[in-house]
């Protein structure tokens, strides 16, 4: 019982990271139908910015978090503008390959500049352990930070999407680009904003993971990136609540599998879930079905 509780707690921390990342995938997919392969790398850059801010500039946690989110947002907008916008009317395969190219470019440029080695984060937050059930269940203050910050960011996102003008524009563009344009919505700006918001969330996830695991490297974004995409598909691509649910569920399933079955198969779980969900309900847990018109 205590073990299960502990696993679930760990799963929720991991899951909220996936959820933060999955939100970016789902928003971008919802608006331009692209699997933004470079999204995991924005998360990696976010972690590096966090590293620079804390280790080199000596900033505290909150300023570092904000800086990392801001630069990630700018990076996301730049990627969209340089690589994806010129191809908006090209084939899906061209767009996807561009995304893969962008991802490689970010990974290896970072590796070129910062070196391939793993770097460790300075301690910017005191890490306390809180124990329950006579020490059988532990939660660290780091896990609490991840949880609290993720929840706050998600609430903020919901507010932006549901209540603000740019949020309404985002929803309109993702439903019907041409109609939105006719209604006087600036489609380019809206897509840009979507990238900015999604990338800021990825940047936040990056710095949180950097501090939590205390290590970052240029290729750290690949696996979490893929998994977060799977989480987005799991929850229903294009659906914001879906991405949150999918991320949390995936995190918990992964920790349960590595806790109870075999930790070596942890990375395979996500892909197995992906295949199953694609075959049984490709629209995901909370998504809608769409068909092609003949």
């Amino acid at each position: 019982m205590a073990v299960l509780l502990q696993q679930l707690l760990n799963g929720i921390s991991l899951g909220s990271i996936y959820a933060l990342l999955a939100l970016g995938y789902t928003m971008v997919y919802g608006i331009i139908n692209l699997i933004n392969f470079a999204h995991g790398d924005v998360y990696m850059i976010g972690a590096y910015i966090g590293f620079i801010a804390t280790a080199l500039l000596g900033l505290g946690f909150i300023p570092a978090l904000l800086l990392s989110m801001a630069i990630s947002a700018l990076l996301g907008m730049a990627i969209e503008k340089v690589a994806y916008r010129p191809l908006r009317n090209s084939s899906r395969i061209a767009l996807l390959i561009t995304a893969i190219g962008m991802s490689l470019l970010l990974e290896y440029t970072t590796m070129y500049i910062a070196g391939p080695d793993t770097r460790s984060f300075p301690t910017v937050l005191t890490n306390r352990q809180y124990s329950f059930m006579s020490g059988q269940v532990n939660i660290s203050s780091m896990q609490l930070y991840i949880l609290v910050i993720s929840i706050m960011l998600m609430i903020l996102l919901q507010f932006i999407v549901q209540r603000t003008k740019i949020g309404k524009a985002m929803r309109a563009v993702s439903m019907d680009k041409d109609a939105a344009q006719l209604m006087g919505i600036n489609v380019d700006t809206t897509i840009s904003a979507t990238f900015a918001i999604g990338s800021a969330l990825a940047g936040a996830a990056g710095i949180l993971v950097g501090i939590y695991y205390n290590s970052i490297d240029p290729l750290m974004g690949i696996t979490p990136g893929l998994k977060a995409f799977i989480a987005a598909v799991f929850g229903g691509i294009g659906s914001i609540p879906g991405a949150m649910v999918g991320g949390l569920l995936l995190g918990m399933i992964e920790t349960l599998v590595s806790g109870y079955l075999n930790s070596n198969y942890r990375d395979a779980v996500a892909f197995v879930i992906l295949i199953i969900i694609l075959l049984i309900k490709p629209s995901g847990l909370l998504g809608k079905n769409t068909g092609e018109k003949v």
Partner: peptide
């Protein structure tokens, strides 16, 4: 068969990753 475009791409990616992870173990 039921998948197209990027969904197929990501599914084939998943299947080949599963093959690799099985080989690892």
């Amino acid at each position: 068969l039921r998948l197209r475009g990027d969904y197929l791409a990501i599914a084939t990616l998943g299947l080949s990753e599963i093959i690799r992870i099985i080989a690892l173990n």
